[in-house]
Design a protein around this nucleic acid. Structure first.
Lengths: 126, 126
DNA sequence: TTACTATATGCGCTAACGCGCATATATTTG
DNA sequence: CAAATATATGCGCGTTAGCGCATATAGTAA
């Protein structure tokens, strides 16, 4: 078991956990489910309706998120209610959304007008 | 064509962009590269050495991160220096690390009642 | 020019992922 | 008991993503 243990500051294991956490947020359907849960817990059936996904898929996604501790699970009779258990999700989404907006704005600006330092401007002469 | 503002607060397109952004952070090698850039810009070769990855792979990952606006690119002679251009990365990693630590602590507590106090720090969010 | 270094890219392979389908499990009701 | 509803799961398929290999491009130096 020769692990190189190179001058890395973060363990491979830790890196893997962080990556896995991010990967859970890297799917539109899961993000949709999370977003649908932003205003409180909902049953699987309700989430199926809101997300437009298959019952099987929604169930699996919710399970994944719950196993990771992102969602909480409450069983009541026949139904299972999921809710956001990790409040950091809100901040994560806020951060990403803000960053994306900034990038979109910058890209749009770069599209409309060339930065043109000095006097050299491509064309679009005023 | 347009869905101006669907009843959902997030459009499918927005969800896709958010998911793609998260997916860029969902790979251990990319996280390793980002972490290596936390203390300033570095050349590809240096990052290859620090990450232990192949030159081709490192180059591709850096390119992906740069295209997304997460990294900045500066070319100087033969070398190309990458640096973190999106400061929200720091907060994202902090949030995820903190959340993961909390979950680990809780899992450990659920396992055996006693828990250590030396672990899980560096963030210690209230 | 040629040789050398640093970085990027095309190609192919494999593993992982998300999805749909059908079915299993659990709980309530008659 | 059986039937109905809500949720979970096994299986297979198609797509995608990361990796390694070899090679291409760019810049430097002799």
């Amino acid at each position: 078991m020769g692990k190189p243990r190179s001058p890395r500051l973060l363990t491979d294991e830790a890196l893997g956990m962080i990556a896995r956490r991010f990967s859970l947020l890297a799917e539109p359907m899961r993000l949709r489910l999370l977003h649908a849960l932003f205003d409180g817990e909902k049953s699987v059936n309700v989430l199926v309706g809101l997300s437009g996904g298959t019952q099987a898929n929604v169930s699996r996604h919710l399970q994944s998120l719950a196993e990771a501790g992102i969602l909480g699970r409450r069983k009541e009779g026949l139904q299972v209610f999921y809710s956001i258990a990790d409040p950091s999700i809100f901040q994560l989404c806020d951060l990403v959304c803000g960053s994306l907006e900034q990038k979109l704005v910058r890209d749009a600006e770069a599209f409309g007008r060339r930065k043109a330092e000095g006097d050299a401007k491509g064309f679009a002469g005023a």
